[in-house]
């Protein structure tokens, strides 16, 4: 058995957080949320660029599994995460996570599911155009994506 050393470090951060001044939790959260609102326009543009990239990638797919293309697609999908929420599009965020789960599973198993990927990309487009806060409308779409994931036995946190 290897030797185990146990340390009990004192975090300077803990002392700093207790220093006089600073801000309240409520003020800080409010300020940070306001700061994020200032990024919405840029986030929205990047989101649209990512979706366009996704369409272009899908057009390159054939009928058989292409590991490199799936890996490239996964990289693009991962970069979308966080942008929908920034723009208040929670259902789209959920769908983007679902696509990452699917592409990760396809890349791991080497099994190809063109329809499953297509359904996800169509869902992303659809959900992109829904106004924020229309989760009820989005629910059947997300349910469809859930079924695709179930077909691949993906245990997702979404």
């Amino acid at each position: 058995m290897s030797a185990v050393r146990i340390h009990r470090p004192k975090y300077a951060l803990a002392t700093m957080l207790r220093k006089p001044g600073g801000t309240t939790v409520a003020q800080a959260v409010e300020q940070a949320t306001a700061n994020l609102e200032g990024l919405q326009e840029a986030g929205s543009a990047q989101l649209d660029a990512g979706l366009a990239q996704m369409d272009a990638l899908f057009a390159r797919y054939g009928d058989t599994f292409d590991r490199d293309l799936v890996a490239e697609h996964y990289g693009v999908a991962v970069n979308l995460i966080g942008l929908p929420s920034l723009c208040g599009l929670d259902a789209l965020e959920n769908a983007a996570h679902s696509l990452c789960d699917l592409l990760d599973r396809l890349g791991t198993t080497g099994r190809w599911d063109r329809d499953g990927v297509r359904v996800h990309i169509q869902a992303l487009r659809l959900l992109r155009n829904l106004p924020p806060g229309t989760d009820a409308v989005a629910e059947p779409v997300l349910d469809g994506l859930r079924k695709v994931r179930e077909r691949h036995a993906i245990q997702s946190s979404n």
Binding site: G22, T24, V25, A26, L36, L39, A42, G82
Partner: peptide, 27 residues
Amino acid sequence: EPTSKGRFNLEKASILMLETNGMGMDI
């Protein structure tokens, strides 16, 4: 609790942030 009046001070903390994605870093 996001509405808490509890105080904390991060002003002096030296924070390293690693993020390759530009928008991710902005966020």
